[in-house]
Design a protein around this nucleic acid. Structure first.
Lengths: 166, 166
DNA sequence: TTGTATGCAAATGTTTTGCAGAGCC
DNA sequence: GGCTCTGCAAAACATTTGCATACAA
């Protein structure tokens, strides 16, 4: 991996964002937002957003490329599409510390975290977040624009039965 | 970056570890632990641990290699030394989401987190951790061996003056 | 028609691995 | 002396970039 100038610090400027008329689908709203930002709506991007809005992930770039086989074109196109989506705040990039980035659709409503099974790598969403108090503390220390990343690693129930002492 | 089989999930089996007689220095104790695990005490490793125990980092492999110029040998040796230290739980690897891993000495006593300035990349240690409650919740959900990573990103005081709207 | 997105190829940069020789215990 | 660690070279791998072409607006 190299320098990631635009990605150096997760969650930057993330937050609640309006997704337009609630009668529209997440896909339609997202395409609208992308268009309003001056981006073009192409086949590969529509396919990419379609997967991201229907399945919640998070997915690696490679996984996304596989899911799009044919429709999504080149892996490079997936990377560039994801970069555009992240810049538009439609996608959030997460880092499970294994050297591969993962991407998930940013509904703009709930700030959540992940419970990742160390054994089977399954991911469960955790809606609760206790870190807000921590952010407030950091603000009191004089910092601004405070955000955070929090990932939880554990052994899930199923894997405990399979390999109890992992 | 590639697959990191031994590193896929941070903080695994981390925890309070005894560092031997308190009269000895962190360096001496660490070398003892390493020796007891069947590792050999070599110049490069002594130099590496010496830096890690005296300055608290976290440092990238490249930074460590620079600090050791001459003494530390090849960058590969630094990587291998760090891997041994991490396996021995003497070093903790952290991931700031910028594509480079950082390493810091694990005193074994305090579990802490980092406040990373998005602008100048300075790192401040934050001793408080609110995530213990979160870990308990996750345990109640049926998970075992629960650990977590938490990194805080913000703009530090100094940088707020320089570029107020970053 | 004009500028953005795509696709291929190639580069980048971090981390890992293979192997012969050096060094610790 | 046996087994580990080192050093060099080379590989592995995710991600980024350059450039000519295709395509949305």
């Amino acid at each position: 991996m190299h320098s990631h100038p635009k990605h150096a610090h997760p969650h930057e400027s993330a937050g609640k964002i309006s997704r337009g008329e609630p009668s529209k689908t997440a896909l339609e709203n997202s395409l609208g937002i992308l268009r309003d930002l001056g981006h073009r709506i192409t086949g590969p991007r529509k396919a990419l957003l379609s997967v991201l809005t229907s399945e919640h992930g998070p997915f690696t770039a490679e996984e996304l490329h596989c899911k799009l086989s044919g429709k999504g074109g080149d892996p490079v196109t997936v990377y560039r599409g994801l970069a555009a989506l992240e810049e538009a705040n439609l996608v959030r990039r997460c880092d499970f510390g294994d050297g591969v980035y993962r991407y998930e659709y940013n509904s703009g409503e709930h700030h959540h975290h992940h419970i990742i099974c160390r054994s089977c790598s399954s991911v469960q969403i955790l809606e609760v977040c206790f870190a807000d108090a921590l952010e407030n503390l950091v603000r009191q220390m004089g910092y601004s624009n405070v955000t955070h990343t929090l990932e939880i690693f554990a052994i899930c129930k199923a894997c405990q039965k399979t390999a109890p002492n992992t």
